[in-house]
């Protein structure tokens, strides 16, 4: 990696101050994406601002009908949290499928959400659950937060601090992994929420995570795997690579949607 300055602030205010002063600085939480990029010299920040010392960003709490998950909460903590397992078991189960044991003990929800990797898991969950992403400046609904592949509404230097997730009536997730990377090649998160049925697709979209409205309508009318069995997403909107053509991914989205509904129960 190239040389960079290293900061480890103890509060969000301090972190934001460092980031505001240096637009080339990059925040790091678990580092599961940024570290490999640094090692491969694909990224050359002037400074790395290590958020791991900010205690206020950790932990899961339930506030009424909402789960509030601190941005630095690790995948392992989400997967094993009694609070998450009781409120949104599909989210805990999803967290358990991210990466491997080492990744789950390093990677954080805030980091995953801020990175918005098209094949990451959490963006699909948050979009389908109608979560709100809280930053040091504002609150953004997931629909406005995820803006395409590796792109979010975050401004330079803005930090995700917490994720607020309304507890759904039911939710489920299924994904087909890329055989090599084991990231999602096509994943579907379905949720029956107070605001209606929402379906989000990750891994497959040419422009990152997206909502699948036809499936939402079908499931709103009839919550069953059969309801989505005949709905196929347009392959021209999907990604293709050596592991999965757009046509294959389109097929997988339908299969995973059916399985997600079954998973939700």
């Amino acid at each position: 990696m190239y040389d960079f300055a290293y900061h480890k602030p103890a509060s969000v205010a301090d972190a934001v101050k460092i980031l505001a002063a240096d637009p080339e600085a990059r925040p790091i939480s678990g580092g599961m994406t940024l570290l490999p990029a640094l090692k491969l010299r694909l990224n050359r920040p002037s400074a790395v601002v290590d958020l791991s010392g900010i205690a206020e960003l950790r932990g899961v709490t339930r506030k009424g009908d909402t789960l509030v998950i601190g941005a630095l909460t690790k995948h392992y903590e989400v997967a094993t949290s009694a609070e998450v397992k009781a409120a949104i078991p599909a989210l805990a189960a999803m967290a358990h499928t991210i990466g491997d044991t080492q990744v789950r003990n390093r990677g954080t929800m805030g980091g995953s959400v801020a990175n918005n990797d098209p094949s990451a898991d959490y963006p699909a969950a948050l979009l389908a659950l109608g979560a709100t992403i809280e930053t040091d400046k504002r609150q953004l609904p997931a629909d406005e937060f995820f803006n395409g592949m590796f792109t979010t509404a975050l401004e330079v230097g803005e930090l995700v601090t917490a994720i607020h997730i309304p507890i759904p009536e039911k939710a489920g997730y299924a994904k087909m992994r890329n055989p090599a990377s084991r990231y999602a090649m096509a994943g579907v998160f379905v949720a029956k929420t107070a605001a209606g049925v929402r379906v989000a697709v990750n891994g497959a979209g040419a422009n990152g995570v997206f909502r699948e409205k036809a499936m939402e309508a079908a499931l709103a009318a009839n919550w069953s795997a059969d309801a989505v069995a005949g709905i196929k997403v347009d392959p021209s909107l999907l990604n293709g690579d050596i592991h999965g053509s757009a046509e294959y991914r389109a097929h997988l989205v339908t299969v995973m949607a059916k399985r997600a509904v079954v998973d939700a129960g």
Binding site: A180, S181, D241, I242, H243
Partner: peptide
């Protein structure tokens, strides 16, 4: 079932890391 070193016609190795080479 899994492994393949894939070159494109121009000689670029498409499966040049564990992200694309299935161990």
């Amino acid at each position: 079932l899994l492994e393949a070193a894939v070159y494109d016609a121009s000689g670029q190795l498409l499966s040049g890391s564990f992200m694309d080479y299935t161990m």
